[in-house]
């Protein structure tokens, strides 16, 4: 197995509040990693740092051997120009908790927007977008606007949109937290189909059942650091650390 993503000494603070304390973390290509942790544990910040939506104070992220958002200058790291960072992000899909679909564009336009802006011919981009929408079961909604869809449907569109650039890695930031309970299943079902498709998935979620079923590896974070990690069976059923036990007993209660 090759490493798709490696995070080295990720350190970040907002003012005097430290959110990441030197996190080391790596993910093998084609696997599903679920990050768990209480609110404020730094799991979303870590995820957002992977595609450089958050800038790290120290440390770096690499994807398939390429540094993300920075380059080596002498014996230091220097931030890249926005244009280069935007180009790198094409290889990393991101799915937001609040979907963040473009409300003034139709569903089809939402999915084809990024490929068109990366120079794919519009006709071709629309064809790919239509195929992706079929894959998430929303072929009949191509001409609708996001607000005309349910939350679950919107998140499935957001997943199709993240897939449109054929990224190596897809990051999910609490993809089901903004959904009504009965809509969670349809979104998890779409994510499940992506597991084992060759794409590397990193999912921040509170869905323990989903983690147990789909994850190859579970990472538990607290107070800006990784407390423990391992296969789901080990971390979820026999957590070694008292903070993990504490968290699981609260979430599963």
């Amino acid at each position: 197995m090759t490493q798709a993503i490696a995070v080295h000494n990720a350190t970040k603070s907002y003012g005097d509040k430290t959110v990441l304390r030197g996190v080391d973390f790596s993910v093998e290509a084609g696997t599903v990693t679920v990050i768990l942790g209480p609110s404020g544990s730094g799991k979303s910040t870590l995820l957002r740092a992977i595609n450089h939506l958050e800038k790290l104070d120290e440390g770096f992220v690499s994807l398939n051997g390429e540094l993300i958002g920075v380059r080596v200058k002498g014996d230091r790291l220097k931030e890249l120009r926005p244009r280069e960072i935007l180009r790198q992000r094409a290889k990393i899909g991101f799915v937001f908790q609040n979907f963040n679909l473009f409300p003034h564009l139709t569903i089809l336009e939402n999915v084809s927007e990024a490929p068109i802006s990366h120079g794919i011919k519009p006709a071709e981009a629309r064809k790919t977008a239509a195929a992706l929408l079929a894959r998430v079961g929303l072929s009949d909604k191509e001409a609708s606007y996001p607000r005309q869809l349910s939350g679950g449907q919107q998140q499935r569109v957001a997943i199709a949109r993240a897939l449109a650039l054929d990224p190596d890695v897809i990051l999910f930031d609490e993809p089901t937290s903004a959904l009504d309970p009965e809509l969670v299943g349809e979104v998890l079902a779409v994510i499940r189909t992506l597991a084992g498709s060759g794409k590397t998935l990193i999912v921040v979620t509170h869905e323990i059942g989903f983690a147990r079923e789909v994850a190859d590896r579970v990472v538990f974070m607290d107070e800006g650091a990784i407390v423990e990690e391992g296969v789901p069976e080990q971390v979820l059923n026999h957590p070694a650390h008292s903070r993990t036990q504490d968290f699981l007993s609260k979430v599963l209660a």
Partner: peptide, 22 residues
């Protein structure tokens, strides 16, 4: 909404197109 900028950033849409299109 700030989320619109973030979504456009995450999709790697070039800055000028982010402004005119999103």
């Amino acid at each position: 909404d700030q989320g619109q900028h973030e979504a456009a950033d995450a999709l790697g849409i070039p800055k000028r197109r982010q402004f005119t299109r999103i």
